[in-house]
Design a protein around this nucleic acid. Structure first.
Length: 579
RNA sequence: GCGCCCGUAGUCCAGUGGAUAAGACGUCAGCCUCCGAAGCUGAAAAUCGCUGGUUCGAUUCCAGCCGGGCGUACCA
C-alpha cells in the first residue's frame, strides 16, 4: 500500500484550493495502512472507493464506502472494518484533525466525516479573491475542442428549435472553456446545394411576380413573407437587373443575394441572443478549395468509396452504419454528406482534438455516417461527439403551433427574444436536460412574472447589490466590491455554513457539467444556491448592530453574488444590479 | 420492422449503483412598522412504466415487453 503523502500545510490562509475530498481520501488510506500494520486488517489492498457528499446533513459532510467495498478483500463485515479505520484515525496525528469534528460509522458501513465550521470559512476569501475566476477548473488541460452549433441553412429566419440548439451549444462552449479546454465556437453555413437553389428560385419567382408576370409558385418553394421582402430588396438595390436576366443567370444571383441577407439576419438574431461565434465556415469554400473532390478521390483510391448504379457510395456499413451512403448522385451532383466528410476531416486538420456537433434530434440518423467518415479519416470515434438536442414543441395556450419554413408559418427566435427577453429564453432552454423534449408555451414564456425561474436567480444578485449599497452608505464597507474579508470565524449559523458549502461546490459542478456536456447541471446548481440564499436572507439580517458580524456577513453575501454571476454567465444570462 | 431519445407526485422535471428520491407549478395553512414579498416558512401529494437478470445493495446497469416523441431518401 502506497498512500499519497499527507499535505503538511494547513489550507487556511493559503491560495491553494482546499480540496477536502483529496484530504479525506489520504486520511482513509493512511488509516487503512496503519490498521494493516497493526494487524487489524488482513490485506493492504485498496479497492475502488469513493469519497462522496451525502444527501442529508445528518450523514456528515463527506462519506466513504471504503468499508463496504473492502468487505470481500478483508473478509470482514463492513461495520467492523469501518470501526477499525476510525480507531486507527483517532490514534493518528494529522493537520486536518483540526477541521474534522467527528467521524462515525453509519448505515450499511459508511464512514461519515463531519467537518468543523472553520474548515469552510476559507472558501469565502477564496471566492472574493478569485472573483470571476472562481469555479474555473484546469480539467481540460488546454485540449483543443471545437463546438459547432446552430448551423441553420440560410434559407429562412431562425426559429425556436434553433434557439434551444444555440443556447445549448453556446453554454457548452462556455462551460468547457471555464473548465480549462481551449474552445472554438463555429457555425457551418450550408451555402451550397439544392436548398440554396430553391431559395433563389423562390425569390426570383416573387421578383417576376412583382414585375407583373403571371407565375405558378411550386409547392417545394419557400412561401414565407420574408421571400417577398427579399425580392423587394433586390428591386431596390439592383433595379430591374435581376428580373430581366434569363432564368439560369438570375436564379443563382437571387440565391446568393438572398442567402447573404438571411445570414446577416441570422447573425443579428444570434448576437441578440448573446451568441457570438469565433468562426463562420462556408460549405461552398470546401468545394472552391477542392477539398470535397480531394477526399472523394482519396477514399476512392482506398476503396472506401465505390461506384454502383451510376452513383458513388461510401462504405459506411463497414463502420457500423445500417447501409452504405451516396456521396455523388447519378446525376453527378454531390450530396450534403460529401461536403460533410470533407468538413469534418478539415476540422481535425485545423488541430481540434475533440469535435462536438450540436444537432436537432431529427438528425440522429446521421451520427453513424459522420462517425464513419471520421474514423475513415484516421481519427478515433471518441474524438467525435454529437449533442442531440431533443425537439421543442411550441405551444400556444397549451395547443401545438404548426410550423414549417416552407409554409412560412413560424414563430421566429427573434419573436421570442423580443417578447420574453434574452435572459428568460436562454434560462428556459437550459432548464432541463436536452435529452428530453421541451414544451415551450408562448403564453407562459411571455409572462413577465415571478413564475419565471430566471427572476428567482437574478433576484439574488439584485438583492445582494441592494444590501451592499446600503452597507456602503453606513460606512461598513468602502467599496461595493472587495477582495478580502474580516471576522469570517463569526459565521457560525447553520444557514451560513450551509451556504458556504454550496458555494464551495461550484467548481465541482462546473467539472461535472463539462464532463457530461450538460449545461442544466449549472441551472440546477444556481437554483439551489438561490434557494439557500433567499432562505438565509429571510432568517438573518446581514447588516445588524454588531458591526464585526455584519462585516463577515457582507463578505459571505458578496461571495454568493459572485458565484451567481459566474454561473449565470456560463449560461449566457446576465446578472442585473437591480430589477 | 429497424435506429435514437424519453417514461419519477395532478402537471413539468432533477437525481444514473448505496443510507430518509430533490425542486418547480398547482392545492392548503402562515410570514412585510424590519437590508427589495420577483422572497420566506410549513402541510398534503411518488408501489421511480411492467417483468426478469447482474450486485452485499438497482430509480440508476443489462435483457425483454408496454407507452410517447423523432428518424429510417441518389433532401438537408
Amino acid at each position: 500500500m502506497t498512500p499519497p503523502d499527507l499535505p503538511r500545510k494547513t489550507p487556511l490562509n493559503t491560495r491553494i484550493k482546499p480540496d477536502m475530498k483529496t484530504k479525506i481520501k489520504n486520511i482513509v488510506f493512511k488509516a487503512a495502512q496503519n490498521a494493516f500494520e497493526n494487524g487489524v486488517l488482513s490485506s493492504d489492498q485498496i479497492p475502488e472507493m469513493e469519497i462522496e457528499q451525502p444527501k442529508h446533513i445528518s450523514q456528515g459532510d463527506f462519506s466513504t464506502n471504503f468499508a463496504m467495498v473492502s468487505a470481500g478483500i478483508q473478509k470482514m463485515a463492513p461495520g467492523k472494518i469501518a470501526q477499525a479505520l476510525i480507531s486507527s484515525m483517532e490514534s493518528m496525528d494529522y493537520i486536518e484533525k483540526d477541521y474534522i469534528e467527528k467521524i462515525e460509522v453509519a448505515g450499511p458501513g459508511f464512514i461519515n466525516f463531519f467537518l468543523s465550521n472553520k474548515a469552510w470559512h476559507p472558501f469565502v476569501e477564496q471566492i472574493l479573491e478569485q472573483d470571476t475566476e472562481f469555479g474555473a477548473s484546469t480539467m481540460g488541460k488546454g485540449e483543443k475542442v471545437q463546438v459547432e452549433f446552430v448551423s441553420a441553412n440560410p434559407t429562412g429566419p431562425l426559429h425556436v428549435g434553433h434557439g434551444r440548439g444555440a443556447a445549448v451549444g453556446d453554454s457548452v462552449g462556455n462551460i468547457l472553456s471555464f473548465a480549462g479546454f481551449d474552445v472554438q465556437k463555429e457555425y457551418y453555413i450550408n451555402d451550397s446545394g439544392r436548398q440554396i437553389r430553391t431559395l433563389g428560385t423562390s425569390v426570383w419567382l416573387r421578383l417576376r411576380e412583382m414585375e407583373g408576370h403571371g407565375i405558378s409558385f411550386p409547392d417545394d418553394c419557400y412561401k414565407g413573407d420574408y421571400i417577398k421582402d427579399l425580392a423587394e430588396k433586390i428591386l431596390d438595390k439592383e433595379g430591374k437587373n435581376f428580373a430581366t436576366q434569363d432564368e439560369e443567370t438570375a436564379i443563382p444571383l437571387c440565391a446568393r443575394f438572398a442567402a447573404q441577407e438571411i445570414l446577416g439576419g441570422i447573425k443579428d438574431d444570434l448576437a441578440g441572443f448573446g451568441v457570438i461565434f469565433d468562426q463562420w465556415f462556408s460549405e461552398q469554400s470546401l468545394y472552391d478549395s477542392g477539398r470535397v473532390q480531394n477526399v472523394i478521390d482519396e477514399f476512392k483510391a482506398k476503396d472506401l468509396i465505390y461506384e454502383a448504379d451510376g452513383a458513388l457510395w461510401f462504405r459506411t456499413k463497414d463502420f457500423g452504419d445500417e447501409k452504405n451512403r451516396v456521396v455523388v448522385r447519378n446525376n453527378g451532383l454531390t450530396t450534403y454528406f460529401a461536403s460533410d466528410i470533407a468538413y469534418h476531416r478539415e476540422k481535425y486538420e485545423r488541430g481540434f482534438h475533440r469535435v462536438i456537433d450540436v444537432w436537432g434530434a431529427d438528425h440522429h440518423g446521421y451520427i453513424k455516417r459522420i462517425d464513419a467518415s471520421v474514423v475513415a479519416s484516421g481519427r478515433k470515434s471518441e474524438q467525435f461527439e454529437v449533442i442531440l438536442v431533443q425537439l421543442v414543441n411550441l405551444l400556444r395556450k397549451g395547443k401545438p403551433v404548426q410550423m414549417s419554413t416552407r409554409s412560412g408559418e413560424f414563430v421566429t427566435l427573434k419573436d421570442i427574444i423580443d417578447e420574453v427577453g434574452k435572459d428568460a429564453a436562454r434560462f428556459m432552454f437550459l432548464s432541463r436536460s436536452y435529452d428530453s423534449g421541451l414544451d415551450f408555451d408562448l403564453d407562459l414564456a411571455k409572462q413577465k412574472n415571478s413564475d419565471n425561474p430566471v427572476y428567482y436567480v437574478q433576484y439574488v444578485h439584485a438583492r445582494i447589490t441592494g444590501i451592499l449599497l446600503k452597507a456602503m452608505e453606513q460606512g461598513l464597507i468602502e467599496e461595493i466590491d472587495f477582495k478580502t474579508c474580516e471576522n469570517l470565524e463569526l459565521l457560525t449559523a447553520t444557514e451560513e455554513i450551509g451556504l458556504i458549502k454550496i458555494l464551495a461546490g461550484f467548481t465541482e459542478q462546473v467539472e461535472k457539467s463539462a464532463k457530461t456536456l450538460h449545461p442544466h447541471v449549472i441551472y440546477t446548481y444556481l437554483m439551489s444556491l438561490a434557494s439557500a440564499f433567499h432562505g438565509y436572507y429571510n432568517k438573518h439580517k446581514v447588516i445588524t448592530e454588531d458591526k464585526e458580524l455584519s462585516k463577515a456577513r457582507l463578505g459571505l453575501v458578496l461571495a454568493v453574488k459572485k458565484v451567481i454571476r459566474n454561473g449565470l454567465s456560463l449560461l449566457g444570462v446576465t446578472a442585473p444590479e437591480r430589477m
